[in-house]
């Protein structure tokens, strides 16, 4: 009961402090919100790009073409050899008839193909790999090329690898910006709380004289930092959502002229909650560091008196 009351008192105190200077509070929360919104917007862009390219096959894969005279038994033997390789995540057999049908359906060569006496395409395997490591893929290519009744092994790695690399790069940039600006948020909160602590130094000292522990002194400031972080997180969410809505509107005007469907993917509910809670945690951490530092300074000054 006492504990709850102490928390309520501290939270009330922090709210009153925020409310007593509404303009300054709103401005600082907005600044914090902008700092948090920046990496969030970058993440939304990345997510949207990822969603757009998800339809494209970016996993490395290798096509293994059999000789034209290979029979079903040969195909089975080759398939077993392919599946035995640990780096292989999936093997799909494409019978020559299916390959021809696909070619006829997807190109304008239907007439030409129909005029052919026999199917010029071989049976083939589409092999998905878990690795894009050039040396390993080259090793597999060479090994599979030596299998009996295998005519050709074609690796299609380059563009998918490049796309994956760009995606990884983008993620790292987002994480980097996030870490930098997250640190910035903690520092700004620490600075704001430090000012509060310094202006309330007398109150803190008198409180300690009449029985306040370090925890008692710290509590309202921690709530202050927590609240500032929480509100900044909410502001960032609002700003990012506003950006997403605007971008979505702009994109919808562009999309019809392209075949590729582009849309803005915003944060999911878990991510939104994590964003706000993470911002609150940053505020709390900043406040904790600032109050601890100032209290140690006060104590040192008191000892020297």
């Amino acid at each position: 009961m006492r504990w709850l009351r102490l928390q309520a008192l501290a939270a009330g105190d922090a709210l009153r402090r925020l409310g007593s200077q509404p303009v300054a509070s709103v401005l600082s929360i907005l600044v914090l919100g902008l700092a948090i919104a920046l990496p969030v917007v970058a993440a939304v862009i990345l997510k949207s790009v990822a969603a757009t390219t998800a339809g494209l096959d970016t996993e490395p894969h290798v096509n293994v073409y059999l000789a034209l005279d290979a029979g079903p038994d040969d195909a089975k033997r080759v398939e077993r050899a392919l599946r035995a390789e640990p780096a292989v995540s999936g093997v799909r057999f494409i019978p020559r008839a299916e390959a021809l049908a696909q070619l006829q359906a997807s190109t304008h060569l239907a007439e030409l193909l129909a005029s052919l006496e026999r199917n010029p395409l071989p049976d083939a395997f589409s092999v998905r790999l878990r690795t894009a490591d050039a040396a390993r893929v080259a090793g597999m290519k060479a090994a599979w090329g030596r299998l009996p009744k295998v005519d050709q092994v074609v690796a299609d790695l380059e563009w998918s690898e490049r796309l994956a690399r760009w995606a990884r790069f983008g993620q790292r940039i987002v994480v980097g910006i996030g870490v930098l600006l997250g640190g910035g948020v903690a520092f700004i909160v620490a600075h704001l709380i430090r000012l509060q602590v310094v202006t309330r130094r007398e109150e803190i000292e008198v409180s300690q004289l009449v029985g306040a522990t370090a925890a008692d002194v710290r509590r309202p400031f921690l709530y202050h930092g927590l609240l500032e972080g929480l509100l900044a997180g909410a502001a960032a969410l609002g700003l990012a959502a506003g950006f997403a809505a605007w971008a979505s509107h702009e994109l919808s005007a562009l999309t019809p002229s392209y075949a590729m469907e582009m849309k803005v993917v915003f944060l999911g509910p878990t991510e939104r909650a994590a964003l706000v809670l993470g911002a609150a945690a940053l505020g709390l951490a900043g406040a904790w560091a600032a109050v601890g530092r100032e209290l140690r300074r006060f104590a040192a000054a008191a000892r020297d008196r």
């Binding site: 109150e203 000292e205 008198v206 004289l209 009449v210 029985g211 522990t213």
Partner: peptide, 24 residues
């Protein structure tokens, strides 16, 4: 420790020479 000392101070009334009142 500092915490226990603070709690002890709650059981002692202290009248300061310079009052230590909060003027706000």
């Amino acid at each position: 420790g500092e915490g226990a000392l603070a709690v002890l101070r709650r059981r002692i009334g202290f009248v300061f020479q310079d009052h230590k009142l909060l003027f706000d």
